[in-house]
Amino acid sequence: MIQVNNFGRVIEVIVDDMLFSSVDYAVEGTVPFDNDPLPNESEIKLWNLSPETISLLTRNSIVGINAGYKGDIGLILHGRLSKAVTKPQGVDLITTIYVMDSEDLSKRKVTDVAYAEGTLASYILKDMAAQLGLPIAQFDLNRDYRYEEGYTASGKVTDIITKIAKDCGTSAYVNKGKLYIRNLRRGADDVFALSPQTGLIGSPEPFEDEHFKGYSIKSQLQYRITTASVIDLSSKQFSGRVHVRRGSHHFSRTGNFTTEVEAILP
């Protein structure tokens, strides 16, 4: 079980070879994550950068963000800068950078790619993943559905992957620039014990939708928690294992420093 240190917050924003540390810069931002293959856009604000530095924040720059606590930080975002906007606010100059956790995958399309009778979903998924051009971090299907009458793929590649993964009872999503095709409840994920002593904030709120039951959970920022993370939750309302479906990290030098998630029951 993972043990954590929740003292002395640290934020590092890395753009190409430039490092913006919360030791030297006022910084805040939000990093979302979820269980679909469309890229997420994060928003990071930096205060009072020099004109020379601002000029280096160009489209497609590689951006990474590490966050956590002294002696225990980790990666919460890896992607590409989509745009940077600088505006004055009182005596300050605030630069907002927008970061996609992968390229704009909605533009990747195929037209009438035909697969023979009896083709397995795993073959089509790997073929469509190659069309995206993202590395596959995990590939584990609940079942490998067989298309007895064949299959014709046409349209957005992300939509095709989502549909075929669903036929396999499996999720498909992009996280930190990599493609995951897997069950949220199954995998070799580390188990994180979350309680008031390890960072749980407030009371978990139950939710229920068409397919899942679970809890909305808020904690002190924890870089280990992301899509498909396993949480052993201990609270007055509920104690047991849950699996993260989606959420977001919120960070700043002096304000919010939290992770909020929706986590589903096994």
Rank of each mutant, 00 (worst) to 15 (best):
26 A>T: 08
260 E>K: 00
143 R>V: 13
99 V>H: 04
63 V>M: 14
70 K>R: 10
48 N>T: 05
7 F>R: 14
50 S>Y: 04
180 Y>P: 03
70 K>F: 09
87 K>F: 08
138 Q>C: 05
237 Q>M: 13
38 L>K: 06
134 L>T: 06
99 V>N: 10
178 K>V: 15
103 E>T: 09
78 H>K: 14
34 D>P: 00
113 V>M: 02
81 L>F: 11
72 D>S: 12
64 G>E: 12
121 A>C: 06
50 S>P: 00
124 I>M: 11
233 L>V: 07
245 R>Q: 14
123 Y>P: 01
5 N>A: 14
134 L>E: 06
104 D>M: 15
246 R>N: 01
36 D>P: 00
22 S>V: 15
73 I>T: 15
209 D>A: 13
18 M>F: 06
210 E>N: 07
74 G>V: 13
174 V>E: 03
41 E>N: 00
148 E>M: 10
98 Y>Q: 12
70 K>T: 14
206 P>A: 11
94 I>Y: 09
150 G>Q: 05
23 V>C: 06
121 A>S: 09
183 N>H: 07
182 R>K: 15
170 T>P: 02
73 I>A: 08
25 Y>F: 15
114 A>T: 04
160 I>E: 01
241 R>Y: 05
117 E>I: 03
223 Y>T: 08
60 N>L: 15
141 L>A: 04
118 G>N: 04
139 F>R: 03
7 F>N: 09
133 G>I: 10
185 R>T: 13
164 I>F: 11
220 Q>D: 01
13 V>A: 05
1 M>L: 10
151 Y>M: 09
186 R>P: 00
108 R>K: 13
151 Y>V: 11
225 I>C: 07
78 H>Y: 07
92 D>W: 11
215 Y>C: 11
24 D>A: 12
93 L>H: 03
105 L>P: 01
27 V>F: 06
226 T>E: 11
45 K>F: 13
75 L>M: 11
58 T>Y: 09
206 P>C: 11
225 I>T: 06
198 T>C: 11
76 I>K: 02
118 G>Q: 07
118 G>A: 09
70 K>Q: 13
247 G>V: 10
103 E>Y: 06
147 Y>H: 09
198 T>L: 15
240 G>K: 04
43 E>S: 12
